[in-house]
């Protein structure tokens, strides 16, 4: 892996350490994410994947370390990032419809007090169309299936019109058709030279879906292009005691 120049990177993380009380959740992470890649953050439960995502976005205050987005602090880059949180993080019985949720992706661009305009509404409808949900735009949230909710969240991230996307487990609880639709859109974003950072769970699909990968278990075990990083040894270090399970399920490892 050649060294990346700073201005080739969308995100630079240096010596990042995050702790809840005395227990470190992330320990001394270094990460340079090049522009225009589809990157997966992979690791066992409790490895700190979501914490890493949220600390890069400035939603968690680190104990130590430094994060820069396109060479600036995150505070100055809020409108260049897009975010798709976990589906379970909100109450889907909230009284509103799919279009209204997607429109929330425009609030950052609107700023204080301004209401969404017709142009915002058009962008939101376009995004719903891209995720195949145009017919569901006036559907109440509690009448959407899990996969449809996930696609609404993706549409909301799309209307943010960002250069750098963070997605927290976008494939959890969706069927194969929806998964293909979502990964298709993520690749489309990457092809428009946007950077997409995804917390991911499924090792089987890793090399099909992603260009780069960060193997995480509190520390960063390995980082780089998927084909360089995805070795038996790295996976064993990342998943520790559960390697027996991994050995049996690894058609792709050299």
């Amino acid at each position: 892996m050649k060294d990346l120049l700073d201005d080739e990177c969308s995100v630079i993380v240096q010596d990042l350490t995050v702790a809840y009380k005395e227990k470190p959740v992330l320990w001394d992470i270094d990460l340079k994410i090049p522009k225009g890649v589809l990157l997966a953050i992979v690791g066992p439960n409790g490895a700190g994947k979501t914490t890493l995502l949220r600390s890069i976005m400035g939603l968690i205050k680190p104990a130590a370390g430094n994060v820069s987005i396109f060479g600036q602090s995150i505070k100055k880059q809020k409108n260049t990032i897009g975010y798709m949180p976990q589906r379970g993080s909100v109450d889907w019985d909230f009284p509103t419809d799919a279009l209204d949720v997607v429109m929330m992706g425009r609030y950052g661009h609107l700023g204080w007090f301004r209401r969404p305009t017709k142009a915002d509404k058009k962008l939101a409808l376009d995004a719903l169309d891209r995720v195949g949900m145009l017919d569901f735009s006036d559907r109440q949230l509690n009448q959407l299936s899990g996969g449809q909710q996930q696609r609404v969240f993706l549409a909301r991230a799309l209307v943010q019109d960002a250069d750098l996307y963070f997605m927290d487990e976008p494939f959890v609880g969706v069927d194969a058709v929806t998964e293909q639709a979502i990964i298709g859109l993520l690749k489309e974003l990457r092809n428009q030279s946007k950077t997409v950072v995804v917390v991911h769970h499924d090792l089987q699909t890793l090399s099909d879906y992603f260009d780069w990968v960060s193997l995480l278990n509190v520390r960063q075990i390995a980082y780089g292009p998927v084909k360089d990083v995805l070795t038996n040894e790295n996976l064993r270090t990342t998943y520790g005691g559960r390697r027996a399970f991994l050995m049996a399920n690894q058609p792709f490892v050299d």
Binding site: L59, V90, F94, M104, Y107, R156
Partner: peptide
């Protein structure tokens, strides 16, 4: 608009810089 987003998804709102 701000209270609506605060009630529905404070997490996302935070990421927007509010």
């Amino acid at each position: 608009k701000e209270f609506k987003l605060l009630a529905f998804d404070p997490n996302f709102m935070n990421s927007l810089g509010f």
